[in-house]
Simulated scan of single mutants.
Amino acid sequence: MQVTFLGTGGAVPTTRRNTSALMVRREGERLLFDCGEGTQRQMMRFGTGFSVSHVFLSHLHGDHVLGLPGLCQTLDFNDREEALAIHTPPGTKSAVENLVGVTGARPGYPIRVHEVQPGGIALREEEYEVRAFETDHRTRSVGYALVEDDRKGRFDRERAEELGVPAGPLFSELHEGNAVELDDGTVVDPEQVVGPPRPGRKIVYTGDTRPTGATVEAADDADLLVHEASFGEDRSERAGKTGHSTARQAADLATRADAKRLALTHVSSRYAGESDRLAAEAREVFDDAFLPDDGDGIEIPYPDG
């Protein structure tokens, strides 16, 4: 699973930081979180490809959605046929539909807009789900947690052979959780040769928000927490008034959630040229905090390697 930071800036883009967008590639599938102005160009620039299956919008402020009409149009020009699913906060479906059709021309492929509920499941797939959680901004807003299912425990081949299980189909049966009977009538249970389930991976994306307890809960033991950090501590009062967080507040939340890594995004343009100070403020609280640049990509390994 790979995360690419397509846009790490705040409401006003700079020459170094575009508006909000995050691409997650998992087992060949591409999930896009927010779609600020210019996102499609960032996708070309950083080689993520356009085969997005789902778009998750945290809220409808322009710096998070104004790239959507252009992206949808480009997908149409590329002769897309498969449906595109757009997930959006409660009460915003009609606004998203109007945004997609702002030019008066509807794409030739289906676009399905789904409203999500905080605390609910936005998307359920065979091996993972995307959960929506409540955030605290100046408008209807949600964050998202991509949570993989637990994986099978490790199969102990040596132990299985000690118990007389021949290599082959019976190994698979045991790994699938089924007991098997040997030729001599001995029954081998999966618990004898299969270890405990192993956790999958978790990525949490907040969008714009003040620090919240719901985020702490959603980000519990996350492999990566992507939290907005619009301001430094010098502007903590403004952060609170405008529904944003400081880098230090994001770091404190990551500590409370016991997250493994913290990526700081949505950096205000007022910190152009001095964004490193935000990362430094965060690392005073949380060692594994970093401030990615546009185009940076990181791999998310399984917890046990």
Rank of each mutant, 00 (worst) to 15 (best):
E158T: 15
G153I: 00
E161I: 02
F171E: 12
A160Y: 02
D150Q: 14
F171T: 02
V187T: 08
D184H: 05
G164H: 03
A160Q: 02
L182F: 09
L163H: 01
E173H: 07
T139Y: 13
E148Q: 02
L146N: 03
D136P: 12
N178F: 13
A145Q: 05
V165N: 01
A145E: 04
L182V: 01
E161S: 06
H137M: 14
T135P: 03
T139W: 04
G143Y: 00
H137N: 08
H175Y: 07
R157N: 09
D150R: 06
H137E: 14
L170H: 11
R157P: 15
R151G: 11
E173V: 01
R157C: 11
G185W: 05
L170F: 02
L146I: 06
K152F: 10
R154Q: 04
H137F: 10
E173F: 05
D149N: 15
F171I: 08
L146F: 04
D136S: 15
N178T: 14
E162G: 07
G177R: 11
E158F: 10
D136Y: 12
Y144S: 10
R157A: 14
L182S: 08
K152Y: 15
R138Q: 15
P166V: 07
E181S: 08
R159D: 05
A160S: 12
F155I: 05
Y144Q: 11
E173S: 06
G185D: 08
K152R: 13
E173T: 01
H175E: 09
H137D: 10
V180T: 08
V147M: 07
E158A: 15
T186R: 01
G164A: 09
R159I: 12
V180P: 09
L174K: 03
L174I: 04
Y144L: 04
V188M: 05
F171P: 13
R154V: 04
P166E: 02
D150Y: 11
E176V: 11
V188T: 01
E158S: 13
L182H: 12
P169Y: 09
E176F: 06
E162W: 08
N178S: 14
D149S: 11
R154K: 04
D156T: 08
V165I: 09
A132L: 10
A167D: 14
S172Y: 09
P169K: 12
V147C: 10
R151I: 12
R138T: 06
G185H: 04
T135S: 08
V180F: 02
V165P: 03
F171R: 05
E181Y: 13
F171N: 04
L174A: 00
D184A: 13
G185Y: 11
L163W: 00
Y144E: 03
D189A: 06
G168K: 00
S172K: 10
D156G: 13
V147H: 02
H137R: 09
V147I: 14
L163P: 03
L174W: 06
D184Y: 06
G177I: 07
R154F: 11
L182K: 13
G164K: 07
D184N: 08
P166L: 00
R138V: 14
Y144F: 03
G164V: 01
F133N: 01
Y144P: 00
L163E: 04
T135Y: 04
R154W: 12
E158I: 12
E158N: 10
R151F: 09
N178D: 15
A167I: 09
